[in-house]
Structure formats: structure tokens, C-alpha cells
Design a protein around this nucleic acid. Structure first.
Lengths: 307, 307
DNA sequence: ACGGAGACACAAGCGTCGGTTGTGGCTCGC
DNA sequence: GCGAGCCACAACCGACGCTTGTGTCTCCGT
């Protein structure tokens, strides 16, 4: 590819060969091989050099794009000046959506969204502290004094919870519900591991409103959960208002907001003090500007109330 | 890259090796080489297989994007089902802009914009006829009966001409001019070759309004022309209203519309009858929907008046 | 507690691919 | 008409990458 571009730019094999520090014959071979593998002629050979054919011209921008992609790929792991790396709990959560909006508002921004494998708050904070990631969206149930030195936490996104039920569920027709109204109903949130980040939140939620949340069963992923909810008359689950789930159009699922009080999931933004990455500054500015209003009757766990 | 993705998807070298029809050892070597060339570890090796590191996870989407780019590049020259290939006179002309708008309105559309090397109408029509390109934007000075069988031509874009002058030019202060008012002024349009497409248009324009158009001198490109215009007190040139020139902010150039009559450049859309390419249909629909109103006092050469 | 299964890494052998050197054919311009 | 400039073909050679063979580690079942 590089050779193709060098030849296209130079207009002749000879000069491209000099640029690439190889012989003209090597350039000739490379181009011939590329043409053979593509099955088309990319250059018309003339006495003064070469000129792109129509196929070559159509190929040219794609070729440049390919090299740019290669450059971005390498840059994403280059120590020192790599793209801003932000960790999210999962790619359907409200913070992931916020990052997506940020990216659309700033096209071309060097941003990588990752998901920490062993997702717990301490590991995420440690990764930020060590510089492996630049920031993380988490619900941080720690008092500020327990944070490592130089770690800053801002509550940037309170995401109201919705109840998600199938059409056959007794609560399906409600337009809004109080958390207390969920008492006695089965709420299924698979994949909660003991000590995991969500568990701490849901533990306190169940206690405050006398709910019953099942964490049992393996987590087969979002799609399987939605399938089960849609087909069941008594299963329900909780999702964030900002979550972006996709389900088949055949599923008649209902989102029911909770109010009185409004339980919100307190997403915080964890970062290292003094990180000079310009995209980090831009992202923080974006988050501050687009931060949704906190509901007046918001409910958060006790450990989040001071922040 | 493919190997990296296969491993990331499989979660282990062994299975990826089977998928790729190579040995596990080869996979191990490929990944090790990739990691060495990037300077980072992409996988953490475990007893049950491998898992992506943070670097690996950041690298993953870029890797996929790279392969997609490679796929698009190959598809752009694949005979049979390639991307829609449209030829434009140059990349700053109004049709190029229209194509860009079309692309932005339909992101991800498979569209390749090319520029025929020996740009003349006959060659372009022949290329469309032969299927080398799917369509071409041209000013076609031919009666319909002289077109090859199966070639269709639609006038889709009348682009009004503007006079472009530097701040020191005597006409710089005008807000509009008649074509006749340009008589006696030097108009410089380098790079017009005898028999070329524009030449036919400008020949008739000069004759109709008694103008003097200099085609002399080599064409050093748009930037050099604009440099010269900006610095000169008597040079002027003609550009399309839809043209997208870029010039340094230091250049004080003035665009002056021409009216009474309004000379327009009649861009036509040349295509082959029966071409089933879906993007061609979409593009024609887009062109029809965004077609600008023709000025009431439009002037076109005699050969374009019947269309 | 121990042994086997499964997974990745290291080492040696070997073929292929890609580079260089050498040469020929072609076109353009002096 | 001849030389300069450019690209293609051929022969040679080293290096890279794949395979086969083996080692080591971890997990799990007996």
C-alpha cells in the first residue's frame, strides 16, 4: 500500500523507489503483486513514468484511508501520546452513550473506549492511577479520603432507573411507578457478582424499598435477558434511562419510569489529577455542558449522598 | 491483524489457529510479532486461553476498522459489484460538492469519485458506455442523436459563474456585474486545452459578450492561480458559484456574481441506461431533490439551449 | 495428591517470498 | 538517429514465516 501511494504521488516508479530506499525493480514487483492480487491494472505505463488508471484512481483514497487506519491503530497503543482511553462499565450504559455523543460532537477526536475485564471499582481506580487508562465511569462508593493520591472523582451523570417489563406483566400498563410499588415483584438482574460495583448499589436499593432482586443464573448477555423479559408475565428488570439496549421489533417491551423518589444510578468520572491530555479537558467540558438536571426527588445510596 | 482479531474473538490461540487453518505455533508467532512491533502486550496468557489487555482492547476496534478499510479498498476495484464510480471534472467543482453532500446525507454509501486523466467529453462518455465508470458530470455539447446507444444525459446542475478578483482590481468593489461589463478586462483561465470541455463553453461565452479570455501559460494548479489573482490589479478569473476553492486567509479575494444575463455552466449527468446500481438510483434521486432553481435570465451556449 | 488434558512458548528445519544486481526494450527529445 | 530515462524480466540470495517436535504451566477430575 505504501508503495502504491508513493508511486501514485511520485508519478513514476523510479522516484518512488528512491523515496522508499529500495530499488526500482522492487517497486515494480510490489506494484505488480498488488495488481495481481487485486486482479486489475492500477497504472498505465508510459515512457515518462506511470499514470493511474480509473481503477487506480478509485483505489487511491481507500489506500490512503487504510494507511490512516493503520496509523491510528498503532497510535492507540503508543505509550506517551496515545488516544484518550476511557473505561466504561459496559457499552450500552449511559456513560457509553455520553461518550458516543461527545465523539459525534467532536468528530475525529482520538478517543478509545475500553471495558475493564475484571470490572470493580478498585481495579478501575488503580488503572487510572497507574496511567493505563485516562478515565473511568464508575459508581464510587468510597469516601474521598480513601482514594489514592491524585485521583479525582466527579459525579457527572445521575441516570434514573426504569423498570423494563414484557406486555404480559401486571405492571405493564403503568406510566410511572414508585420504587415501593415494586415490592413483591421479582426483579431479575443477572450477572451481579458479590462485591461488584452494581451489587453495592442494588443491595442498598433493595433494603431501602423492601424489594426482591434475583441475581441468580448465569449472565447470557443483554439479548438473552431481554428475550426472557419479553416472554414472561412476572419477570422484570431495571435499566438506566440512558441505557441503549437494542431488541428485535417483535419484542413488546415497556419502559416504566420510577418516581417518588426517583432512584438514580450515580455515575462518576474518575481521573488522575494533572493529566494534560487535551481530549480529557474537552470531554470534561462536554460532560459539564450536557449534564442532565438531577431530579428533585432523586434517591441514591447513602455512600453517594455526600458527593 | 486478521490473526489478532481471530484470537480476540476466539479467546484462545488454539481455536483461532483452527479457524485460520494454520498451526497454533504460527498464531503464537504472529501475535508475538505484532506485539513486538507495537511495543505492547495485547493478550494476557492464562491457562484457559488468553484475554485482551487494556492495550489490546483499545487496539481491537482500530484493528477491525483497518480490515474494513482493506475490504472497501479491494471492493472498490472488484469487477461486478464494486462501489458506484462517478467521474468529475475536478474535485473543487460544483458537481464534486454535490457528490460530497450526497455522501454526507447517506453516510457509508459505497461511492468512489474519480477524475478522468484525459478529460474530454467523448472519452468520458466512452468510459461510461464501456462500464469503466458508472456516471460522469460533464457539459455535453452534443445533440442527443450523436450519443452512443444507451447513454443518457440529464442537465442536473446549472452553476452560475462568478468573477474572482483581487482587492486591487478595478472591479473589486462591484456587488454584481453584467457579462458585458467584463469586456476589455483580462480574464485568465489557465489550462484550457484546445478541444477540451471548458474551451467549448468559454469560446462561445467570449464570442457572445466580446470578452477576452487568456488561456495561455501552464496550469500550476488552483493555488497558484489564486495567488496570482490576489496579487494582481488587472488579472481576473471566472469560477463557478458552487466551486470550493480554498485559499490562505491573507488573500483578499472577491467573488462577484454575474447577472443580466447570468452565465451558467451546464453540468450534465451522464449515465448508462439500465445500470442497476442502487447507489446510482439514490444519487439521481438526491440530485433531482437538491437541484438548484435555474436563474430566469440564465445564459448557456447555443448547444446547451435545447436540453 | 497425582496425573492427564489442554493451552501457550521455544527450537530446529525448510520452502517461499521479497529484495538486489544485471540486462533488455521502449519512448521521447535533442 | 542516438542517448537518456524509465519500466519489465531473469537470476541469485537471504530472511521471514510456517510446520513439526518438544517443553512447561495450570487446572481439574480421579
Amino acid at each position: 500500500m505504501r508503495t502504491f501511494l508513493a508511486v501514485a504521488d511520485a508519478g513514476q516508479f523510479q522516484e518512488a523507489a528512491v523515496d522508499l530506499r529500495i530499488t526500482q525493480q522492487a517497486v515494480s514487483k510490489r506494484v505488480a503483486n498488488l495488481e495481481r492480487s487485486l486482479g486489475v491494472t492500477l497504472f498505465t505505463r508510459t515512457a515518462r513514468g506511470v499514470r493511474l488508471t480509473l481503477d487506480g484512481e478509485a483505489f487511491l483514497p481507500h489506500s490512503r484511508e487504510l494507511l490512516h487506519a493503520a496509523e491510528r491503530a498503532a497510535a492507540s497503543v503508543r505509550p506517551g501520546n496515545r488516544a484518550l482511553r476511557v473505561d466504561v462499565l459496559n457499552r450500552r450504559s449511559a456513560p457509553a452513550e455520553a461518550l458516543h455523543r461527545f465523539y459525534r460532537a467532536h468528530p475525529g477526536t482520538d478517543l478509545d473506549v475500553v471495558t475493564l475485564a475484571d470490572a470493580n471499582v478498585e481495579a478501575a481506580i488503580e488503572a487510572v492511577h497507574a496511567g493505563e487508562i485516562d478515565a473511568s465511569f464508575r459508581a464510587v462508593p468510597l469516601p474521598a479520603r480513601d482514594l489514592p493520591d491524585g485521583i479525582l472523582v466527579d459525579r457527572v451523570l445521575d441516570d434514573p432507573l426504569h423498570l423494563l417489563v414484557g406486555a404480559a406483566h401486571p405492571l405493564a400498563a403503568a406510566t410511572a411507578l414508585t420504587p415501593a410499588a415494586l415490592a413483591g415483584h421479582r426483579i431479575w438482574i443477572p450477572g451481579i457478582r458479590q462485591g461488584a460495583e452494581w451489587a453495592v448499589y442494588y443491595d442498598e436499593l433493595t433494603e431501602a424499598f423492601d424489594l426482591r432482586i434475583d441475581a441468580i443464573g448465569p449472565n447470557f448477555g443483554s439479548a438473552a435477558l431481554l428475550d426472557a423479559i419479553a416472554d414472561s408475565a412476572d419477570l422484570a428488570t431495571l435499566v438506566g434511562a440512558g441505557d441503549r439496549h437494542v431488541w428485535p421489533a417483535t419484542h413488546d417491551l415497556r419502559r416504566i419510569p420510577l418516581h417518588g423518589p426517583t432512584p438514580v444510578y450515580p455515575h462518576s468520572f474518575v481521573r488522575r489529577a494533572g493529566n494534560p491530555h487535551p481530549t480529557l479537558t474537552a470531554l470534561r467540558r462536554h460532560l459539564a455542558a450536557t449534564r442532565p438536571a438531577r431530579p428533585v426527588d432523586a434517591w441514591v445510596p447513602g455512600w453517594a449522598r455526600r458527593r
